[in-house]
Amino acid sequence: MAFTGVDQLEAALAGESYLADRGLAVSVYLALTLRRPLLLEGEPGVGKTEIARTLARVTGAELIRLQCYEGIDAAQALYEWDYARQLLYARTLQDGGLDPSRRAAELYGPEFLVERPLLRAVRAGAGAVLLIDEIDRADEEFEAFLLEVLADAAVTIPEIGTITADAPPVVVLTSNRTRELHDALKRRCLYHWIDYPGIERETAIIRLRAPEASEALARSVAEVVARLRDLDLVKRPGPAEAIDWTRALAAIGIGRIDAASAAETLGAAVKNRDDMALVRKILPEVV
């Protein structure tokens, strides 16, 4: 599905319960139009991963997710051979007396290839949204390798050949900035910093994501969370925490947040012991 303008994309995202700010909508639109990877950064819980999921839904594409972690390498990201089956098969070939020159070709046939997210995305081409989540957790070597795959939208498997995407998949990368990404990777990508939403938009987001909560509850939580973000916290609550908190409050039958109910359910929004102590102390003022 192609979009004719930013407004149309924004509306489609909203239709799937994702309220993007204008900057994000423009960036996503450009990523689709210019066929460039989109690098998203922002505080945890602002919806970096969610936008890729939603984008896959509105474009009718398959979401392929690659969760990065330290030490991830080609075998886990691209492809791997099914060694156990290969070994077994090698033994049967031995007994069957197959022409030795064809043995390798048999042994490295497509049925032994274990497809990993990057290969799957290249094969799916334009029919996929590839989400490369928390790229900052992988190491520099992996980044360089990723750059290669992204640059050509092609994967070379020595035993099989090169697999090229007819059209590159839509690529969304997210980073939590635990380290600075390499410039070469950034240069290839469009970039957007997702900020915390304003109270109006956050209220709307909460309403969409926690439909069981009343308008008054959603707004009061949005207001309290906005004030908590101004505090000097180690880990500030994002929209994801605001949604969780609203859900928790709605679950215990609260129609509007007050100091007592906020204190009881605080664990849904504040996840650090020092922060908890600080927030508890001033909760009566901010609520």
């Binding site: 930013v6 989109l38 690098l39 600075e180 970039y191 957007h192």
Partner: peptide
Amino acid sequence: RGAEAVGPEDLYWAARATLISRR
């Protein structure tokens, strides 16, 4: 290219997405 793809009202966002990559 980005500026061409979006309307003039989104020029700021298009320029921001394409020109910088650090908060």
